[in-house]
Design a binder for these strands. Sequence first.
RNA 1: GGGCCGGUAGCUCAGUUGGUUAGAGCGCACCCCUGAUAAGGGUGAGGUCGCAAGUUCAAAUCUUGCUCGGCCCA
Length: 959
Amino acid sequence: MTETRDYRPTVFLPKTDFPMKAGLPQKEPGILARWEEIGLYEKLRAAREGREKFILHDGPPYANGDMHIGHALNHVLKDTVVRTQSLLGKDAPYVPGWDCHGLPIEWKIEELYRKKKKNKNEVEPKEFRKECRDYAQKWVDVQREQLKRLGIGGRWDKPYLTMRPEAEGAIVAELHKFAETGQLYRGAKPVMWSPVEETALADAEVEYQDLTDSPQIDVAFEIVESPIEELVGAHAVIWTTTPWTIPVNQALAYGPDVSYWLVRANDGRDYLVAFKLVEDFLKRTGLNFRDSGDSIPNTDSELAAFVGKLHFKGSDLAGTVTRHPMHRLGGFYAKPRPLLPGDFVTTDSGTGIVHMAPDHGEDDFDLCRAHGIDPVFAVMGDGRYRDDWLWLGADDVDADGKERRRSVINKPFNSPEGPICSDLREAGALLSASADYAHSYPHSWRSKAKVVYRCTPQWFIAIDEKLGHIDGAPTLRGRAMEEIANTRFVPEKGRRRLSSMVEGRPDWLISRQRAWGVPLALFVHRESGELLVDPEANARIQQAIAAETVDAWEEARAAEFLGPDRNPDDYEMVTDILDVWFDSGSTHAFVLESDEWPELQSPADLYLEGSDQHRGWFQSSLLESCGTRGRAPYKAVLTHGFTMDAKGFKQSKSLGNTTDPNKVMEQFGADIIRLWALSVDFTEDHRIGDEILKGVGDTYRKLRNTFRYLLGALGDFDYDKEAVNFADMPELERYMLHRLSLLDANLRRAIDDFDFNEYVRALSEFTNEDLSAFFFDVRKDRLYCDDPKGLERRAYRTVLDILFQALIRYISPVLVYTAEEVWSTRFPDRDSIHLEELHVLPGEWPDEALATRFDALRELRETVTEAIEPLRREKTIRSGLEADIIVPESAVPAGFSDAELADLFITATVTRGQGDGVTVSRTSDHKCGRCWRLLPEVTEDGALCGRCDGVVAEMDANA
RNA sequence: GGGCCGGUAGCUCAGUUGGUUAGAGCGCACCCCUGAUAAGGGUGAGGUCGCAAGUUCAAAUCUUGCUCGGCCCA
């Protein structure tokens, strides 16, 4: 009789060439090449011309080394901000930049010299800087290619570099603004100084290492004068870990609120020591009480017995004067060493009396300056004492009787057997000396050598002077604080972090004694010591540097810069260079305000960097801009955390737990890294690792397959001929447009909040839950089997088209390559998805009443699938299509027919019953040979249902 | 050592001003489909909310201490 016909060719299956497997590592470079070929970035600029601008200003990464995961995260976030703003229709240009000057690069070049046994001092500064410049340029080029490969869109043909001569000239111009407005001063202040590199170091250039063999000594200073009679002739004891500072001791400090005790020791002397530290003191020195009856009081009553006896409050010590252990040498050492009150004195360690060397400590300097005691500048740049310094220890003499001048960080110099200690011991002043103290001590992060505090002439920007040139502004610090209050912070906690740093910071030390950087192009009058303030001279300097690079700043040209009315011999030319934070703090000036990038403007809408930049770029930019312009260079600041390894630990090369984004791109593709960066909570520290990347890959495949389905279902869709009006659509289609409207609002809010985690999550959940598991599944039958001319199938495809148009735009800032691949598959003749804007969705789509009914229906649907499950387990039925369902009448939302329910539940039939549970049984109907539904109208398995019969008949007729 | 920030299922994340049984997606296990097929659908098992005290009728949520991790600083 009737042989079973194979109806497969009559079913409208999705058809597309878009592959399920992505092959991103192979595919992405080709897509990137095409973008460059068509000039995508320029096309986008042209397309958005005249629109509202959104300026994200790029914080310059340092031009050294390959792109690492931190760069990748940072740039993906920046790119996503730019692309999402562009999706909203704004003109959002992106000009990337690099930080090129500074010690790390200089150090690299010096390292190369050392390998070649070449001495830096024998090389012309110009030649040396040229090598630094070439080195920086090399890494700029490397990083640029890596960032492009990541899919970061921007002005790659003209990035800003801090070493471009135009930038160097502009940075000098910014410095001159500070000079011309009186905010710049030269001060002698102890700064972190590396004797090895012979330069002052910024905080960021210093690292702390734990030492266990540092020297510690107790030194007695004889009291020669005091309002307290018992103290005269006694000894004040200081404790220090830096014996080398004793030669420049100038005073002692006590804590006004600290309690002191005069210890009558068994060596016959009386020692003044903080009460709380007596025990430690005796232990270190091996001394004991002179009278066996004395002991350290343990109880309050024992202590009370001492009060008024040999027990003093710190403030009582005012007016007490000691003399230096080496006072017999006369001169500097013969001067009195007064006891001064210092709030910084604690009783955590030592003796509660602190020796003051204003040359070598911040507290020391400040306290001494307040009492008219000046530093003596005895230690030179290489860490050695001046040749003419009177005393450094008698045995610091070589075999020929010639004095050896050792660096102060030299270990033997500071050792208990060293020259300082030996002489102190001989003078009877050394009460203890050992080399076993454990603490952390600052080292240069480049040379790993110890650094010291050293007083040197340095240039500072004053933080607490009134800003006379800016109307209504208080001090620089004050204005910066006001501007922090006016700035948006994402996340909000960044505000507190930045303000507490600005609140507590000292004046800005901007000078460095190095070669690779922008000069502090200033003249100082030799006689008056005054800074030359001459806008015309300054302009000549700026122009020369902008034209010829920093090489223009050389002695030979002093006359040219000073002009005909001044004698170059009268002026000292400053040869220091600027802190690189001043360079990058000025980017808003030489990038955002520059004519070279007319697409930019200032202030920027957003600065976006890692949370470490609260100390760095956010702050230097804020101070630079407030000092010169009286306002912040940004309207908003977004910070991200750091990327840890899979277990939440810091990534480091030495631990071998780093994830290299370049390798991830090779292995999985740039889109995977991008999706990862946007999936984690970047406002906090977050992790990366194999398992996490695998999960990201799963999310990616689901999104990709959703697009593959849409492409397949819409392969032959012709909007003009097929589209159905909203009003004519079935309710499910209208409900999906409601859901899309919600998603759209959600995503737009996420864009405004820079909440990309939410953005990706919302998008991913929508495709999983609303589309794949619900809408696509329910409408599968209609797509495959309905009459193509029928309203229902056309309505479905119309919504699929709407979904496609929306989703491809939503995903385009995230999966930049895949979005393009999808777009070009559907529209091979169009330029790029990345030129598109979000559509404004029709206001008629949201329908709360409809949504309430469908939301309830989906809940019922869950109950139904749950009820079907046991029958499938026992193999009574295989799929829901074989199930007859009875649902409680009361559980069904209004307005659904039984047939609609069967469609929505993907079951054979649905009827309503009175009970409160769902009943499931196997249907007795037969299976349609084409659509596989089990329906009463199908006479036998394999025969056709009415719908399929009609469709097949028409196809046959047209064949 | 100090300041600030964080610790919720295997993973990525939600959890309003303290208020039923702490949620989602993914993964995993099991099942179905074999006409989205290296895809699709379903069901299920996973949590002492870092630990310990405290406040409260009630704590993932508030307080304190500790611990682990991070950033910045010394």
